[in-house]
Design a protein around this nucleic acid. Structure first.
Length: 507
RNA sequence: GGCGCGUUGGUCAAUCGGUUAAGACGCCUCCCUUUCACGGAGGAAUGACGGGUUCGACUCCCGUACGUGCUACCA
């Protein structure tokens, strides 16, 4: 019997949504869609000290922007609601107690000071860490060392406690990862992880197992940082008697910083000048905003396509793929084992590719806010024409202003020196006479303007090359942009004449 | 320190025992373009190291090095 495929993305609402997080969502989503399954969003807000107001809504917004909408979530609901772990709090205790009853877990009454003392007392050297495990548990205050009556009394008088898993001794825990193959751990080296905290909330370890079981998750994809705690989760599935229903695991490689080594962090983005979060993230505690890919002008399709290729490819060499193509081609087994360094240049290349294949009407809608923010308010007709003319030189949405501002405002002539260097009376007299000719030109098209220009150049015994660059700088302000006569055509006769006159006055 | 995971050009990477070791980004040169960009044609640049196994290893095995993750009542 084939179970319906169900996957989940389970973030903590603690801050901005990182590149790696989005990629995890993406791989989950692609896998779910490829297999006709469900994609669930579950909010893991079990750490009340790290909870950040607004973070959950932000995650929802990011997924919406990326086009990775969950089938079940805190806002959408679903058959396994609630999808927020804080609202499922009471449910986990039952399983913790079940584990205690079967001897796989125990109560521990140690205070933070007790733990600190234990760690410093048993420490061999400064590099080693002392774990709460088979070697130390019998020296602590817990239901393994205390008598049944003593435990009962502590429980009854409200002494704070946690529930810890009792790791078995001398067992090799093996599981098969869909990306990495067989991985094994020595149970002696894994510590007695806390399952239920003193505040009654479960830790990640208990919550993820219970909820994946209850929500009938069939495949669990998560970051590689979870690999070391996988044996705890495996054992929990076993101890709770759910082994048959355990999802298949896949631990995704990390996204690394471009220079040096290590996991890509928000700080690296700030340092190297690129975003790390999907969308702008406002941190209420620090009262600061971190820039997102959306805001610097990425198209969501380019963003997700780029992320898909960071650690996976279909083997054909094809890189630009729509969501539909990705769904069709994706296979979790082809995800790489090794981490990938993030390359912002490549990311921008993807965006440029998407800008080229997006129609002008859509681009106009996307780019308008960036142009308007700079004071550009072109008519829809002009804007559409300009976009068609300059899109190939635009990588990020704000480039539509940088590459086309001279269509929407009279530009400052920044490169006047470039004209001045070779300026002479012959050129001046050409421009002055061409200007008066221009006033009379009745057909205002790029072809007509250029022909007219050519005629005057010939009459003045100049070479066309002598006047092309000056004309460009007069109209554009710098040495860039589409063909000059095309520009003159679009900005109109009056504006063209005005710009040439202004420039002449400065020479 | 312990444990896990990883390692093909600067970066993303194909290869699944036999190839001149693809392709893309970036970089360089040339062409196109009387600007810039696009486009086109080229170029430089890669299997961490040491042992095996094999007729033959980038590919399989072992070791070393390096990197990285975890080692919390955080996820």
């Amino acid at each position: 019997m084939n179970k319906r495929v169900r996957v989940r993305f389970a973030p903590s609402p603690t801050g901005g949504l990182h590149l790696g997080g989005v990629r995890t969502v993406l791989y989950n989503y692609l896998f779910a869609k490829a297999n006709g399954g469900d994609f669930v969003l579950r909010i893991e807000d079990t750490d009340q000290t790290r909870f950040v107001e607004g973070a959950e809504q932000y995650i929802l917004d990011c997924l919406a922007w990326c086009g990775l909408e969950p089938d079940e979530s805190t806002v959408k609901g679903g058959p396994y609601a609630p999808y927020r772990q804080s609202e499922r709090k009471e449910l986990y205790r039952e399983y913790a107690e079940k584990l205690i009853a079967s001897g796989h877990a125990y109560y521990a009454f140690d205070t933070p000071a007790d733990l600190e003392e234990m760690r410093s007392k048993h420490r061999v050297d400064e590099h080693s860490t002392v774990q709460y495990d088979r070697t130390t548990r019998m020296h602590m205050r817990n239901s393994l060392t205390l008598s049944g009556d003593a435990v009962l009394e502590l429980l009854n008088n409200g002494t704070p406690y946690v529930v810890r898993i009792k790791m078995p001794e001398n067992e090799t825990i093996v599981f098969s990862d869909m990306i990495r193959g067989d991985i094994s751990f020595d149970s002696n080296l894994v510590d007695d992880k806390v399952l239920l905290k003193a505040d009654g909330m479960p830790t990640y370890h208990l919550a993820v197992v219970v909820d994946d079981y209850l929500m009938k998750i069939t495949h669990a994809f998560r970051g590689e940082e979870w690999l070391p705690s996988a044996p705890v989760h495996l054992l929990l599935w076993d101890f709770l008697g759910w082994k048959e229903d355990m999802p298949q695991w896949a631990h995704l490689p990390l996204i690394l910083k471009p220079d040096g080594n290590g996991k890509l962090s928000k700080r690296d983005g700030d340092r190297l000048g690129f975003p790390v979060f999907a969308m702008n993230w406002y941190d209420p505690a620090k009262n600061e905003t971190t820039t997102g890919f959306r805001e610097i002008g990425f198209l969501p399709q380019a963003f997700t396509n780029m992320l898909a290729m960071l650690g996976w490819n279909d083997g054909t060499g094809k890189e630009v793929m729509s969501m539909e193509e990705l769904i069709k081609a994706f296979s979790i087994e082809r995800v790489h084992k090794g981490g990938a360094k993030f390359d912002f240049e490549k990311a921008k290349w993807f965006n440029n590719q998407y800008i080229q294949q997006t129609d002008n009407e859509t681009l106009a809608k996307l780019a308008l806010p960036y142009v308007a923010a700079q004071g550009g308010h072109p008519s829809p007709e002009l804007f559409l024409k300009v976009i068609g003319l300059i899109k190939e030189r635009c990588t990020l949405l704000p480039d539509f202003w940088a590459q086309g501002h001279f269509f929407f405002e009279t530009p400052e002539i920044k490169e006047l020196p470039a004209i001045q260097d070779k300026w002479n009376e012959a050129k001046r007299s050409f421009f002055e006479s061409w200007l008066s000719g221009l006033e009379l030109l009745s057909v205002w098209t790029d072809v007509a303007i250029e022909q007219h220009f050519n005629d005057y150049i010939a009459q003045h015994g100049l070479k066309k090359g002598d006047a092309m660059l000056p004309l460009r700088i007069m109209l554009v302000g710098g040495k860039y942009g589409p063909g000059v006569f095309h520009i003159a055509d679009l900005i109109g006769k009056e504006e063209t004449i005005k710009r040439i006159q202004t420039a002449l006055a400065q020479l």
